[in-house]
């Protein structure tokens, strides 16, 4: 019940805000959609008719009302390029993108949490300095550049990984093989953030009285560090990983384009280049919904992890 109220009071208004901004952004893009759709040699009569069909001759607030109504009933229009429902195309491309983001999250958790914990436990040792160095290197590389670098070295020169695509449909091994470089590229920037955050929360928590109590009880160090320290440090780390999930969606656009992977990212990219507004609108709206959903889930997870705010 509490969850439902929170969903209605937080997630829904945010989603409404997001699609409103999306609506306004698309109207602010310079140029005339009718002109873009019909091409430079369209007649004035054709243009006027299309504008009427699209409702572009209506006042902005009427357009907004129409937009909202069709958004709510799920009628998100057809792609101008393929003439098929825009939402359907997004949903078809979604699994590939989600797979990329989930792989990146798995990498972030598998690499950053242990690296951050070790850095904190062995602070100011060469391990700590080594981790910091790698982390800062990864954080300071732009995604598109790192992606190209990995492609050049590991795919083109060494031929360890495929250069483009998402792998054979139905062949999990091939798909995973295609996933390695893109997910690594996508994760890279966040690896640094999450490692640093894990390190600093662990350092803070390791100085707490209850960690001393745990040691005074005779618990062994791994239990003290994982059960007592990490469990508390995770409270702040989980929030950031959850927010990261949303940001990964944005990064996925760049990574999919660099690695020529099919997905919502490449779809939005192509749609922007082709002025396929309904398609851009559908893609971005789904991303916004996913972003809001992950934030909402993060909130719930935080509540589950922290007994002090459990409802």
């Amino acid at each position: 019940m509490g969850i439902l109220i929170r969903f209605l009071s937080q997630a829904l208004p945010t989603l409404l805000g997001a699609v409103t901004i999306l609506f306004l952004l698309l109207r602010m893009i310079p140029g005339d959609p009718a002109q873009a759709m019909l091409g430079a040699d369209a007649t004035a009569a054709d243009l006027a008719r299309l504008r009427q069909d699209l409702g572009l001759d209506q006042p902005l607030w009427v357009q907004y009302g129409v937009f909202l109504r069709s958004f709510v009933v799920g009628d998100w229009g057809n792609s101008i390029v393929t003439k098929t429902p825009a939402l359907e195309r997004v949903l078809e491309a979604l699994p590939s993108t989600l797979m990329l983001c989930v792989a990146a999250i798995v990498l972030i958790i598998a690499i950053s949490l242990p690296a951050g914990v070790v850095s904190a436990v062995r602070r100011d040792s060469w391990v700590d300095y080594g981790v910091s160095l790698v982390v800062f290197l990864l954080m300071s590389m732009p995604q598109f550049w790192l992606g190209l670098l990995l492609l050049l070295v590991l795919s083109y020169w060494l031929d360890w990984f495929p250069i483009f695509g998402a792998g054979e449909a139905g062949d999990l091994l091939s798909q995973l093989h295609h996933l390695v470089l893109p997910s690594l590229t996508l994760a890279a920037g966040f690896l640094g953030l999450v490692t640093r955050l894990t390190r600093s929360s662990m350092l803070e928590v390791l100085g707490r009285d209850y960690v001393r109590t745990a040691r005074a009880k005779g618990l062994r160090e791994p239990v003290v560090i994982v059960k007592h320290a990490l469990r508390n440090a995770l409270l702040s780390v989980v929030t950031v990983i959850g927010l990261t999930m949303g940001q990964l969606l944005g990064g996925a656009v760049i990574v999919e384009v660099v690695f020529a992977r099919p997905g919502v990212g490449t779809m939005i990219w192509d749609a922007i280049l082709q002025r396929d507004y309904p398609q851009v609108q559908a893609g971005v709206a789904v991303f916004a919904a996913l972003f809001i959903a992950t934030n909402f889930l993060t909130d719930l997870l935080y509540g589950l992890l922290n007994p002090r705010i459990r409802v």
Binding site: Y210, G218, P307
Partner: peptide, 26 residues
């Protein structure tokens, strides 16, 4: 350390000043 751990909480115990911060909130 392993020998100390075997003594702590079993033959020598300690209680602290501030019980709220000395107990793990989780």
């Amino acid at each position: 350390l392993a020998e100390l751990q075997a003594l702590r909480g079993r033959r020598i115990s300690m209680i602290f000043q501030e019980p709220l911060s000395a107990l793990n909130p989780c």
